[in-house]
Write a protein that binds this DNA or RNA. Structure first.
Lengths: 252, 252
DNA sequence: CGGTACATTGAGAAATTTCAAAGTTGGTGG
DNA sequence: CCACCAACTTTGAAATTTCTCAATGTACCG
């Protein structure tokens, strides 16, 4: 289920020559051109300035459990994951959805435990970078420091938006907002083709994100389908009435 | 309504001698022994290493409106305030409650606008510190940098907890959690006397915080009173059954 | 070809909102 | 000191949203 990706054993060979290293995942990662890994460790094209500890895990498995020791700054390299809180009574709240290239939490920069868990939605490849190294780079590089400030501010804005959703908006609005949010992220990545984009969340996961029950989530999605707004299922969303969907998802 | 506190005009007099400056609010602020101002600019006893721009404002007035230019890093010196989002349809969501000594948002360190507004709950004295100065100090002082990391992490944990509250918990649980949260903060400050502590939020504000209507909020508070758990009103909370209240507020 | 997880549907129950009216409180000016 | 005003709180009744329970249908995996 959880497989450590074997690092090249002779990163630097006996004669001190650094080989091409096509196998180190970061060296071929195309998210480095846009995400925080690139800002931290150099954009794509450059060899990666630090080695992360890479792993793979199957869909629906936990990458991290709240309260466990945390191995480093966690990045989702490939696949989708969610950050969530599991309550003793069985309920769970999904806090955020992470796409390939996303830092799991810009504020989890310190050794110690986290208050949330992380679960793979699809099969996931992920990576830990050493805390101290990441902190040192941020501290010693003013433009990087500012980039990181922007990232933490963006995460807080996102959390604030979710708070407004859960506190003030109806089931339909919350679900529409989630779909629109993911649509916009996919569009930026060029993954929106023929008004269709990947959406691997199950109805249970949509429910856990929006604070609804799976049954009610199903009814809302059915209504969206019946009204020819969009069709969610089988790992994809098909947009039929983009304008209408955006109107539903927008704050009123 | 909004009054600029006149800074001493001759901070350094003609002979270059710095006078005692008892009037600069930061020099007599007793929160500096514990809050982030102290970490940033020196603990109480020391003269304040930087001058904030201080102001006062009456209860129920806005300190900052979302989208306006932001003057600096905002600290609540005295009184209670809330951070909130106002929706066009009249609904509002309160994101967090700030007590004296609180930084308004650890992630609002950059010039530019914020996505939320800030309103005084009671009469408030507050203060802006220049962005660049604060950033420079954090960047140049490793222990301060770590302290600030802890603060941003704590703010995110708080936002995550609120998300769980709004997404997964009943009206009674949300209200109990708010009361317990404030109770614990007041207790740390030694403001809990005879099982009673200050609580200046109106029912409307409690409703905006918990994502409920004021009418339902009133019914829940009435039930708490009738069941002799606690009595909320007139600017205070009287705790009758602390254990029961904590049980209600705790995650299940 | 089963089995398991996921999705759908129906009916009734519960929590919360809405609307409307009446009571209270605290502050202000006469 | 009193009267009044405005804002806040309380109460009732009905409507709405969302949940719960339970059964059935569907898709994918080995």
């Amino acid at each position: 289920m959880l497989r450590e990706i074997e690092p090249l054993s002779d990163l630097v060979n006996a004669r001190g020559i650094v080989p091409a290293l096509p196998d180190l995942p970061c060296n071929t990662c195309h998210f480095r051109s846009s995400n925080f890994c690139g800002a931290l460790f150099g954009r794509s094209g450059q060899p990666m300035a630090i080695r992360g500890k890479h792993r793979e895990i199957a869909a629906r498995q936990n990458i991290y459990r709240a309260g466990e020791g945390n191995e480093g700054v966690l990045v989702i390299c490939d696949g989708w994951a969610v950050r969530f809180v599991q309550l003793p009574n069985g309920k769970r709240q999904i806090l955020s959805v992470m796409l390939p290239g996303d830092l799991v939490s810009a504020t989890s920069m310190l050794e110690g435990q986290l208050g949330f868990s992380v679960q793979a939605v699809t099969d996931v490849r992920y990576c830990y970078f050493p805390f101290a190294e990441v902190r040192a780079r941020i501290r010693n590089n003013p433009p990087l420091f500012d980039a990181w400030l922007r990232l933490t501010a963006a995460e807080q804005r996102d959390a604030d938006k979710r708070l407004v959703d859960l506190g003030q908006r109806t089931a339909q609005e919350r679900i529409a907002a989630l779909i629109v949010h993911v649509m916009q992220r996919c569009e930026q990545r060029g993954e929106l083709v023929d008004d269709e984009f990947p959406f691997p969340l199950s109805q249970q996961q949509i429910a856990d994100f929006t604070g609804l029950t799976p049954v009610h989530t199903c009814r809302v999605l059915s209504a969206l389908r019946k009204n020819a707004v969009c069709d969610v299922g089988h790992g994809f969303v098909k947009i039929m009435e983009r304008r209408e969907l955006q109107r539903m998802g927008a704050l009123k």
